[in-house]
């Protein structure tokens, strides 16, 4: 059996990759993908601990997160579409109307 540490390391790595994407990418679509990565890192943690403790709650929760992620993507893409319509780009650094 794979020790829990390996799962956690994998999840941490995925989360950091996602975070790196969010912080460095300028395209909104990359944003969405990076957020997906971060969520899935969390999912891995859920499933890993569920396996470790023999408790299915974590797995059920992971399913919920997947469903939620789908919904979130739908909204996210909607926002990106509006962004594109208004500014002609999907670069998040261009629209800075909401600044001080």
């Amino acid at each position: 059996m794979v020790p829990i540490e390996w799962y956690l390391l994998l999840a941490t790595a995925m989360f950091c990759i996602g975070l790196f994407g969010v912080l460095t990418r300028r395209d909104a679509l990359y944003f969405l993908m990076s957020v997906e990565l971060m969520m899935n890192a969390a999912n891995i943690n859920f499933v890993a601990f569920a396996l470790y403790y023999g408790d299915l709650t974590g797995q059920v929760f992971a399913l919920f997160v997947i469903a939620l992620a789908a919904a979130e993507v739908a909204i996210g893409i909607g926002i990106i579409l509006v962004l594109y319509r208004n500014f002609g780009v999907t670069d998040v650094t261009v629209p800075t109307e909401m600044r001080w």
Binding site: L23, R26, T96, W100
Partner: peptide, 17 residues
């Protein structure tokens, strides 16, 4: 203080992190 509010989403994310 209000100059923190740059309008750049990436900076907000950075601040959050």
């Amino acid at each position: 203080v209000r100059q923190v509010q740059t309008g750049l989403v990436s900076q907000y994310a950075l601040l959050l992190t």
